[in-house]
Design a protein around this nucleic acid. Structure first.
Lengths: 332, 332
DNA sequence: TGACTGAAGTTGACCGTTAAAGCTGGTTGG
DNA sequence: CCAACCAGCTTTAACGGTCAACTTCAGTCA
């Protein structure tokens, strides 16, 4: 409740001296410093950061736009983002957009009205699904794609998908189904490209009927898997574009009496915590979510503070993790 | 970039008229209103909320203290909290404490220094594990326990545990193991109390060797389960105090060749999304996380706005969900 | 006509902090 | 001896909104 004026009066110095004693103590005589500290302690003074931020025209807060906070993959990201922001004295304003443009807009407005200094966007942006974040707002894509326009951190989605499909091919699989994310999603596009490249290199023709569209939720994976169960000539492996859909798909396959991996191999993407503990444990691609989050936050804060970036696009390596959900194709 | 003064000049009215036109338009003549709106549009004026908040001595932000954002159970809570806060014009400042008191303290300081108006605490507080949030800070426990001191939303942990153990007893189980959370955790205490009550009612003696301590993580459940595998006289059922530990435990049991539920029943708590999709699907207690979150946020905002609360302690009902991880005890 | 009324608009104080400019007394170098 | 300089402080003026108090003015009615 007490203001800097009261502290100044109690310490017998001016307000400016108190201000300096607190923010640049080396510029103040030790005698005054002691008086100020005594007064601060006596009055239990807590500086009003709202006033400080107003004065400095900065909020020291960053909006994190996330499609769904309850998605465990984003949880890892956010933990890393928050950690780094906290270290650097910034707060994280959580913006769960639920995938809607309106909610995204409301949070963008928070930046325009100075309630936040910048944005971390966890949804990748493409031509079709644009963000309408104007160019003068500091913004970093923490989970971007190949053709992001602004500063971005991302993995080589195409290459990782190729690695996965190459591996399935090396196990003898020739008919490989895909459970994709939404068609427009940049990650879907990149990963599908990798799948196609891998098949092309192996001389296998791409077949549209082997692609089932999901939306990255467990439930959509569960549904999409039915498409493959009901086929006359079933695929012998399914490449799922994230772990949640793979877990959902495995549920369906097991319910249909299809054994994994003996009858059908299943692979995921992301390596969420649960991928290790599901049954069978999931062969997948591990994304360095923690490091991506930290780098994205560092990048954003550097932009906010007006420093120049050495590079605006950063690709991090993934790890290919073989577990128990994949096996060589069964000889008939 | 433009301020209210420039808008006033462009519209040919005073700053106060602009201010009123934007916040109480019904008090302004329609002619002036039109001029103001035209000027706002022309200058692309965005009010500086930092200044507004400073003036009103409110930040319109709320800190949400969560032990670990990557935990899927908290994800559900936070989604509900954020949703309600957004509706009411408040922002959510994410405070991932990672279970440490220092980080919690840093976020409490944010409230003391006016960067936030109140706190939602997702960690339950007890005598042993106190929060040092001073009494004059608006704070609501969204996931509390029986003996919370401040305003709180919680479930009947003791009763829910009793329901679960009663069910296992009704299936003929007599030796029921427990994988608990950390001993000091209020939820552990309440749920263990329910377990003991249930056994007492059935005339079964409580045995300490049937309690294995975990820490609510999958990994701890995986480890704790070994204690039961190595027993001469194994329990025939395990009551886990959350779903993650149950999923970890099932992993261990399956690896040891113990079939679930034929050889051993396993139960969880919380009903996270995976509980439905793991193998076998998990018998568990569903917490109304969404509603708890909404109610907690409503309560907090009411406290912040100085309204009086009709009740400061709210107990919500749980749902008992029977799935495939439990079965009648095997006759030998 | 002039007093009264109420709505619309103006004015300036105010919030807590900090940057910039100004002051003071003592030291130093030419 | 005086100008230049310095450390360490004080004074003052913003920052951008809001609000209470005040002024203006058109309309009403005795």
């Amino acid at each position: 409740m007490s203001s800097i004026r009261e502290v100044a009066r109690a310490a017998g110095v001016s307000v400016a001296t108190v201000s300096r004693a607190l923010s640049m103590p080396e510029k103040v005589a030790s005698k005054s410093l002691a008086k100020v500290h005594a007064a601060v302690a006596k009055l239990d003074y807590k500086p009003n950061m709202l006033a400080r931020n107003f004065r400095s025209a900065r909020s020291y807060a960053v909006v994190v736009l996330v499609p769904d906070i309850a998605n465990p993959f984003y949880g890892l990201f956010i933990r890393a983002l928050e950690d780094r922001a906290q270290q650097k004295g910034y707060a994280v304003l959580l913006g769960d957009t639920r995938g809607t443009a309106e909610r995204e807009q409301e949070y963008i407005r928070r930046v325009e009205t100075r309630l936040a200094d910048g944005i971390i966007q966890l949804r990748p942006s493409s031509e079709k699904t644009k963000n309408n974040i104007s160019a003068d707002i500091p913004c970093v894509y923490a989970c971007g794609c190949e053709y992001n326009t602004g500063p971005a951190i991302h993995i080589d989605n195409r290459g990782a998908a190729r690695t996965m499909v190459d591996y399935l091919l090396s196990l003898g699989h020739r008919r490989i189904g895909v459970i994709s994310g939404l068609k427009d999603n940049p990650h879907t596009i990149d990963r599908l490209e990798g799948y196609k490249e891998s098949l092309r290199n192996a001389g296998i023709e791409f077949s549209k009927e082997l692609i089932a569209e999901g939306d990255f939720t467990m439930w959509s994976g569960l549904n999409a898997a039915f498409q493959f169960c009901n086929m006359k000539q079933r695929p012998t492996a399914i490449f799922c574009m994230n772990d949640e859909m793979a877990i959902g798909a495995m549920q369906t396959l097991k319910a249909q009496g299809i054994r994994i991996p003996e009858d059908m191999s299943v692979t995921g993407f992301d390596d969420i915590a649960y991928a290790k503990y599901c049954d069978p444990s999931l062969t997948t691609i591990s994304q360095p979510a923690e490091e991506m989050g930290k780098m994205a936050m560092d990048m954003l804060l550097r932009i906010i503070e007006g420093e120049s970036l050495s590079q605006t696009d950063c690709v991090l390596p993934t790890e290919f993790i073989i577990r128990k959900s994949t096996a060589p194709v069964k000889l008939i």
